[in-house]
Simulated assay, not measured.
Amino acid sequence: MKNLYLLLAICLLIGCSEKREEVTLSGLKKADFEASFEGKETGLYVLTNKNGAEACITNYGGRLVSVMVPDKEGQLTDVVLGYDNIFDYVAVDGNFGALIGRYGNRIAHGRFTLDGVTYELPQNNNGHCLHGGPNGYHTCMWDARQIDDQTLELTYISPDGEAGFPGNLTIKVIYKLTDENAVDIAYEATTDKPTLANLTNHSYFNLSGRPGSQILDHQLMIHADRYTPVNKTLIPLGELASVEATPMDLRRPVAIGAHIDDAFEQLVNGGGYDHNWVLNSNGDINVLAAKAISPVSGIGLEVYTTEPGIQFYSGNFMSGSDKGKHNVIYPHRGAFCLETQHYPDSPNQPEFPSTVLRPGEKYHSRCIYKFTVE
């Protein structure tokens, strides 16, 4: 087991008793994120911009822990779910705010073939490999270097054979909190053997300023004419289906809860929305890919990406038992995710855009989460 609970608990107790208490705008105590894990030190890195907005990141899993942006009354509001100490992040099997890899989303049956060689991966979700397996990058220790008040660099070398994937993958991720109140995430990676690369961020958003509430009233738009239908275990069927005249048509803003429980086969399969949309933006980072708005707070979230797809997940598997920051219970459908990505199961679906990365090539991906006030 990677999770050394006792060691973390001891380190937290020592850290809390000896270190000067520093508290972020979101109420996080830096000392609660200081521990020793896998021979490296965990910490909480704080980014601020000229507007007074704040983003906090831990190098355990490269996780976005909090994002404080103004609501329609000018009050700073935390819009992402998570925990207020490193122990909970390690102890709970979840993806709150995490960097995901080596392959974000699902690979059918935990198996793919590349250049005639078949690779076996951990099966951690209905017989499939999800988000790189149970010990994916969301559980790894990233090396952190804070470049300036607004920029954090995270690096990780994923060894050949980790979770069954071939090649040493050298990864760099840059988090930047811009003066436009955007969290700009830039990914780079290189490999020494042919491999797969599909990295993303798995932040859970609730824009209302009421983290114990559901997000069914949030208005959502996804700039996509097509999506990838899935079977009952959420593996794509291989087609790019039109959203026309279906509950998957989000080309104009729609309340997330408006059709979420419709007797539509795809929503039944996902227990709600848990699908990949084929973006019309065609990899243009300057074209809006998706937008969500809370009618309560007036906070909007705009998503821009170089990726061909985006996974919209409506928190269907949130059990209502998670106790997050400040002891708030996160309810069923208490957040949504917009994960920019290549399509699920692309390694087994040759008609989908390729996720193969070869020596001499460089993987690039970028996602911008920009927060606005309506």
Score class of each variant (00 low, 15 high):
N105E: 06
K40Y: 03
N348F: 08
P344H: 08
A289D: 13
N3H: 11
E180S: 14
A9K: 13
Y45V: 00
D274S: 08
T139H: 12
N135L: 09
I310K: 02
H259D: 15
A31N: 14
N85I: 01
L234N: 11
A186N: 13
V254M: 13
F371P: 08
R111Q: 15
T178H: 06
H259N: 15
G167A: 04
Q150W: 02
G136F: 01
R251W: 07
C337K: 00
F205L: 00
G283K: 03
I185A: 05
G212T: 03
S297F: 10
R333T: 03
R251A: 04
T24R: 02
T200Y: 08
E351T: 14
E361D: 15
I57V: 14
K176C: 09
T372A: 05
R333S: 12
F165I: 02
R226F: 12
G110N: 09
C367Y: 00
E302I: 00
K325R: 12
V92D: 11
D225A: 13
T191R: 05
E188H: 13
E21A: 13
S26H: 09
D345E: 10
C367M: 11
V356L: 01
Y156K: 04
I100Y: 07
N286T: 15
D32H: 15
K40C: 04
P331N: 07
V79A: 04
L237H: 11
Y45H: 15
S158E: 14
Y137L: 15
D322A: 12
Q266S: 07
I100S: 10
E361M: 03
G133P: 11
L64H: 06
E22W: 00
K370T: 04
F165G: 08
G324V: 02
K30P: 07
A31V: 10
A53P: 05
H218M: 06
L279M: 07
T48A: 12
L288P: 06
R102F: 03
K19P: 00
M1Q: 09
V373W: 03
G27S: 09
I174K: 02
C56Q: 12
G209Y: 05
L76E: 05
Y187H: 10
L114T: 08
Q266Y: 08
N348E: 07
L357D: 05
S319M: 04
Y103H: 13
A9P: 00
V23E: 09
G74H: 11
K30A: 07
I107A: 06
P331Y: 04
K323W: 01
K2C: 01
T24K: 09
I14V: 15
G334L: 07
A53W: 00
F336E: 09
G101M: 03
G136N: 06
V79R: 03
E302F: 02
D261A: 11
D345F: 05
P295V: 00
A197T: 10
E162W: 06
M141Q: 15
Y156V: 08
R111T: 15
H138S: 14
S213N: 13
L169R: 08
Y330H: 11
V230S: 12
G94D: 12
L7T: 11
Y330S: 05
P353Y: 04
S321H: 13
T372F: 09
I57E: 02
